[in-house]
Design a protein around this nucleic acid. Sequence first.
DNA 1: CTCCCAATTGAGACCGGTCTCATAATACAT
DNA 2: ATGTATTATGAGACCGGTCTCAATTGGGAG
Lengths: 362, 362
Amino acid sequence: MDRKTSPFRPVTVADVARRAEVSKATAARVLGGYGPVSEEVKLRVQAAAKALDYRPNELARSVSTGKSGTIGIVVGDIENAFFGIAVRSISDTAHRHGFNVILANSGEEVEAEKAALKVLVGKRVDGLIVTPADNRTIAHLRDIVRSRRPLVLFDRPIEGLSVDVVATDDRDAAYAATMRLIEAGHRRLAYVTALHAEPPVFIGPEQLYTSSVKARIDGFLAACHAAGIEAPEQGICLAGGAIAGQQRASVERLLADPEPPTAILASDSLVAFEIFKATQARGLRIPDHLSLISFYDAEWTSVTTPPISVIDQPVYDMGTRAAELLIARINGETSPVRQCILPTRFIARESIGAPRRLLAAI
Amino acid sequence: MDRKTSPFRPVTVADVARRAEVSKATAARVLGGYGPVSEEVKLRVQAAAKALDYRPNELARSVSTGKSGTIGIVVGDIENAFFGIAVRSISDTAHRHGFNVILANSGEEVEAEKAALKVLVGKRVDGLIVTPADNRTIAHLRDIVRSRRPLVLFDRPIEGLSVDVVATDDRDAAYAATMRLIEAGHRRLAYVTALHAEPPVFIGPEQLYTSSVKARIDGFLAACHAAGIEAPEQGICLAGGAIAGQQRASVERLLADPEPPTAILASDSLVAFEIFKATQARGLRIPDHLSLISFYDAEWTSVTTPPISVIDQPVYDMGTRAAELLIARINGETSPVRQCILPTRFIARESIGAPRRLLAAI
DNA sequence: CTCCCAATTGAGACCGGTCTCATAATACAT
DNA sequence: ATGTATTATGAGACCGGTCTCAATTGGGAG
């Protein structure tokens, strides 16, 4: 520990105190802005601090107070615009309330999520906002709850975990969107998600480890059943997000089917993007050959030809609500667990048409 | 400080030591993995730690060691996909080297940037990666350099600030792209950037407070001059990014000009997006009525009709390099300041054509 | 001119870790 | 048996803050 001798050793309260010729306690009172100090001493200490370019060590402060003024966010994938905006919104709100943000990426892997949580807890964040990667393994989340650290689940509720949640009305939104496709005359529908399963076929809802996707598929199937469509499960495509290129391959396989779907509901804007590119590559026209609806109003969906109808999720609001809820908890609010379900909005564009036999393109 | 009495008080080394019936020092050695400990004691301590669910307090550790294992990132706007990927890449690399990441958003405001830096320094980050919002006010960055804290500038070099930089060959890229437009026959070119000026007209390069944009405009003008185009400065449009809607208005005004440009080079994918939407709204066809090239290969540019030619920036690589450079410095590397300039790649798509008189649409 | 109360101030413990140093215990060579 | 090197352990200082508590000071009341 040769820190004392280095000429670049950061300035401490003790240094300031020495220069201002007061005790460490008094200097700390001025610098920390807590105890009573006379005006004269206050000015002297502030002058000394300025002269020395004192920068408080927030870590030491946190160790001593037990609060870090920081909230941790664990998202599935920052590259995804959905999460990008969520992060933006959460950090805006956090800063507005005087909190900082530490970001961690799980890459939708539970193990990475666990590791991230461990780090964040290690850094003693005051609270956590998490998009759980897998609703089947949640022991680590239970631990957080048990330790009384405020936690808000983002976008993905987990049954049986009594904790605050901010999410959207996924089931209803999927139901309504599916109905629109059905009303347009479609009977051969597909639901495409980035979830992964081995083999990549839908067997039952217990495979669906992301709760929001589970809810959406639930809505999709319910709409199909209500319309008397048989075996709609066969239209569920688990495109497998982890391995790069796998999504594309799955989507291409789906479209190459001898009896391909005439309408697709895409679970997020990334798979939708793959689907759109695949239709272009095959020379399929939307909506003549294929109708398409995507979750999330991604930038690109409004400028394609034709523009794509989407289920717009109020991500920015979701982030704000999540942050506010969390901060209220951090500040001691003890009301019962809250489920904050925000409404989605359907944006009708030009990607829905009546079904037509798919032409073998090229 | 009633922490001692709370039943949810976090477990400390002292607690573990007590349970394992060893001294605090010994427990700390096992838990921190440093000094020599006998196998038997080690196991006993580990068992106690597990039983108590001990979570080391990284903050206390940092205070004591002087290293936080954290790097700070300050970006202009996380919502921008360019920065989104940069953040992803930086945090991937950081984690690979055992570092964490604290993210701050400047919103391209120097004051916010200063505040963010203050917080990050307060949290004693081991190093910083910053995209400076304004190359005219850099005293706060100078302070960082003076305090010997490793700093890497991302995407935007600053003349006269001796510090590591990772950026792209902006000038050359702009020059080459402009040349392509000129070679296609254009003589009335525009360069559109989100920079802000009052009034919003280009007077001289000293207005250009973002170094990357300055370099690009430099290249744009050089190409124009080389081709004998007179007064190309008049084609420079400072669309003013801060206020929402202002970009759109500027772009619309540009296209509504009685003598509008026949080709545009867009400084980033966000203004390009505005430009594209404006052409659609006015019924202008690309590339018949207007040729367009944009910096950055944003997702949407490949799926529009027609797809847009872009100058692809290797963002992911840039992030990786920046993080690696920074971490090397943190680990004590003392080699002279490095400028890491990565090459861009032109992706030719279908947005460039010969000029044609713009038809007054509607 | 005392006495009491409030306002300031300083000394030092504390937060939860790391790390130095002295001591104790063991193994080995002489 | 004695000396020495080696290893394991404990006591306690330290990091840079916060915070408790006692001591000092000054002013107004009696």
